[in-house]
Amino acid sequence: MMQAIGIAKSVGIKAVQCRSFHRSVGIVGMPNVGKSTLFNALTRTEQAQAANYPFCTIDPNVARVGVPDPRVHALAKMENSQKVIETQLEFVDIAGLVRGASKGEGLGNKFLDNIRQVAVIAHVVRCFEDVNILHVEETVDPLRDLDTIRTELLLADLQTVERRLEGLKKKKKSNEPGLHSLQEVLNRILPMLEEGQQLSNLTFDFPEEQVQFDRLQLLTAKKALYLCNVSEDDAATGNEMTEAVRKQVEAEGSVCLTVSGALEEAASAFEDEESQMEYLQCGGLEETGLTRVIRASQKLLQLQSYYTVGEKEARAWNIPQGATAPMAAGVIHSDFERLFIRAETVSFDDLMKAGSMKQAREKGFIRSEGKDYICQDGDVFNFLVGR
């Protein structure tokens, strides 16, 4: 028997990739609504070229950002860890969409293909006036822009479903597994798409039908949040345009955030975090847009964090809600799930109360959990696995 933490140090980053799951956020919207500026600010990079003309982002820019997590830093301080490693989310800056994208207009096909690869769609809508920044529709109207994007995604899904149904007609006598379930799924969602319904909250009673639905990678089935991009002056309070967007999307049960790409990008130019926060506070903000967007994305992705801590490093790991202890171990290394024996665990709160892992053990806070244990957010683990 061996402890999983020791192996995790030796296998490094490649080990984590042995057991990964989709956790990318695609930033989408009409051209010149501030997607690339917001991407630069949120990821604190200058990977995306912000320019005053449509389609300046052709290939999607990708950046991985650390998830702000005070708990992992508190663990590192408590155990005097040499290094702190936060968990990460991936942000993808995708080319701007125009009316007719579902028919290939602009960069429509590339745009739609890129969206299919992300888990969450972050819709950026322009809620600021600026005569120096052109709008592809000539006027600023966030509700119109939002309707345009969602219509194009819906039309693309409708085409996908119709093509699949047409293909199934040629396989009526086929005994290929799953065809009946796929037929049921397609027949259910076709009228929904024809009526203009989004599919993000759709579920199926039969597991095989849910699998077939997920495999379709439909654009309107993806979780979404909405980012109202405003001027620096409206960063703290929003404006009439943000209020209109918020009322519409919240009525649908979606998340709406007001952010200022210009303010966030200016703040990100400061080298230290303290100076960045001082600049944001001058604009009436108490935290970065990155923090709020990541928090919303984590919730939509139904992710939670667990931790490992030792002398060399304190590290946060992302797992889906409902994951078992072996699944959590498998995020560190795929072999850990297969060879899992048990997990020594303590909640973050209990560990902080104890003051150290040693004292937590002395106080009886550390539990021994088996293969059926459902992980809780904030668990601190030491996995024991076989050889």
Rank of each mutant, 00 (worst) to 15 (best):
G6M: 07
K9Y: 09
S10N: 08
C18P: 05
C18M: 09
S20N: 10
H22C: 09
R23K: 15
S24P: 10
V28G: 00
M30G: 01
F39E: 02
T43P: 00
T45S: 15
Q47R: 15
A51R: 12
N52S: 09
N52W: 01
P54C: 12
V67I: 15
P70Y: 02
A74R: 15
L75D: 00
E86M: 04
A95E: 05
V98L: 03
N109V: 10
N109T: 15
N114S: 10
A119Y: 05
A122F: 02
V124A: 04
C127F: 04
I133G: 04
I133D: 04
L134C: 13
L143Q: 07
L143N: 13
R144N: 08
L146T: 04
L146A: 10
R150K: 13
T151K: 10
D157R: 06
R164W: 01
R164F: 02
L168M: 13
K170R: 15
K173G: 15
K173T: 15
S174G: 07
S174C: 11
P177Q: 13
L179V: 11
N187E: 14
M192I: 08
S200K: 12
S200D: 11
L202T: 03
E209Q: 13
Q210S: 11
Q212C: 10
F213W: 01
Y226W: 11
L227F: 08
N229H: 05
S231P: 08
E232M: 10
D234A: 03
A236E: 14
N239D: 15
M241K: 12
M241Y: 06
A244T: 10
C256M: 12
T258A: 00
E265H: 14
E271S: 13
E273M: 02
S275Q: 12
C282L: 12
G283I: 00
G284N: 08
E286S: 14
E286D: 14
T288F: 09
A296H: 09
Q298M: 15
Q298T: 13
Q302R: 15
Q302M: 14
L303V: 12
Y306T: 03
Y307K: 03
Y307C: 00
I332E: 08
D335E: 11
F336I: 00
D349Q: 12
M357C: 07
E369T: 03
Y373I: 05
F383H: 02
V385M: 04
